[in-house]
Simulated scan of single mutants.
Amino acid sequence: MILLISDLHLEQERPDITRAFLHFLGTRARQAEALYILGDFFEVWIGDDAISPFQRSIADALKQLSESGTAIFLMHGNRDFMIGQRFCREAGCTLLRDPSVVELAGEAVLLMHGDSLCTRDENYMRMRRYLRNPLSLWILRHLPLGTRHKLARKLRNESRAQTRMKASDIVDVTPDEVSRVMAEHGVKTLIHGHTHRPAVHKLLVNGEPARRIVLGDWDRQGWALQVDETVFNQAPFSLDA
Rank of each mutant, 00 (worst) to 15 (best):
A235G: 02
V205A: 05
E208T: 12
L62I: 01
S179F: 00
R211E: 15
W218N: 08
L137H: 01
R197S: 03
R120T: 09
G193H: 13
Q162E: 14
D40H: 07
L62Q: 11
N133Y: 02
V205L: 04
A91L: 02
Y124W: 10
V227K: 11
I5Q: 07
S116W: 00
D16T: 10
G92E: 05
R126K: 14
A91W: 01
E67Q: 15
T230A: 14
I46C: 06
R79H: 10
F54C: 07
E229Q: 14
L22G: 08
K166N: 07
T94S: 13
R141A: 08
A61E: 13
E11W: 00
L204R: 12
D121F: 03
L135I: 15
H9M: 12
H185G: 02
E158N: 15
F42L: 13
V205G: 05
E67R: 14
L140F: 15
G92H: 04
M127R: 10
Y124P: 10
L204W: 01
H23S: 15
L10G: 07
G186P: 03
G26N: 15
I213L: 10
Y124V: 12
N157W: 02
M75C: 08
R97F: 01
L38E: 08
E67Y: 01
P134D: 06
R180I: 00
G26C: 04
N206Y: 00
W45E: 10
G207L: 03
G207V: 05
T174I: 00
R129S: 14
T70M: 04
P175D: 04
Q234H: 02
R211L: 01
E67A: 09
M127T: 09
A105P: 05
L131Q: 06
H113S: 06
D115I: 07
R220M: 07
V227T: 11
G114A: 03
E177W: 01
D217G: 11
L155A: 15
N157S: 15
S168G: 03
I191W: 03
C93P: 04
T163S: 15
Q64K: 14
R132F: 04
W45C: 08
G106S: 08
S159H: 08
R86C: 04
F41W: 13
V173C: 11
H194A: 11
R89N: 13
L38N: 09
I213V: 12
R180P: 00
A152K: 10
A32C: 02
R89G: 12
L190N: 11
H76V: 07
F54L: 05
P198A: 05
D240I: 06
I46R: 09
A224K: 02
A161H: 13
V181L: 15
V178M: 12
G146K: 12
P236E: 06
I213Q: 04
H142Y: 05
A199K: 15
Q221Y: 01
G186M: 03
H142I: 08
R128S: 09
L25F: 06
E43R: 11
G146V: 06
D121V: 07
I170Q: 11
V44I: 13
R129W: 00
G114C: 03
R211D: 02
L239H: 04
M112W: 01
I170H: 11
R14M: 04
R164T: 10
V102T: 09
